[in-house]
């Protein structure tokens, strides 16, 4: 497969579509942050994703270069990239959820222990 074949695989129309979709994603993310549906901390992840998409839309050469270097077909490159990226994001979420679960556990235990102390204080015994 030579370079010309690779180049025509991403047509100008497609590049524009990729860029527009990326910009729409940026807009959506910013709107979600503005409405407090999304924390700034996690919005960064999505802004970075959108900007990557925009970058590829403007400079599709990076995809063809990667395809050529890896001796892949263009579709395989796209598939591999998006799969790895999605996997990375899901793993990041698992880490975030695990931290939330741990904090939730400590909080529930503290609430229960404090509830016990409050009951003893209200009953006026010398246990506490």
């Amino acid at each position: 497969m030579d370079d010309t074949l690779l180049q025509i695989s991403i047509q100008p129309g497609h590049r524009i579509a990729i860029a527009i979709l990326s910009l729409l994603l940026v807009g959506l993310v910013l709107e979600l942050v503005r409405r407090d549906y999304l924390k700034e901390k996690y919005a960064l992840l999505w802004v970075a994703t959108s900007l990557t998409g925009l970058f590829i839309g403007i400079f599709p050469g990076i995809l063809t270069w990667l395809t050529h270097t890896l001796k892949f077909q263009l579709l395989t490159t796209l598939y591999a990239l998006s799969f790895l990226y999605t996997l990375g994001i899901i793993l990041a979420f698992s880490v975030i959820i695990s931290r939330l679960v741990e904090r939730n556990r400590v909080l529930a235990q503290e609430v229960a222990l404090l509830g016990n102390r409050v009951r003893h204080l209200e009953e006026g015994d010398d246990h506490v």
Binding site: R105, A108, Q109, V111, A112, L113, G115, N116, H127
Partner: peptide, 25 residues
């Protein structure tokens, strides 16, 4: 007996750990 009521079902591990925290305190 004294009693601690956990706010929801947390499993035996978190339940026992609550008891250990109480014992420490």
């Amino acid at each position: 007996a004294d009693i601690i009521d956990l706010p929801f079902n947390m499993g035996i591990g978190s339940t026992m750990q609550t008891g250990y925290k109480y014992a420490v305190a």
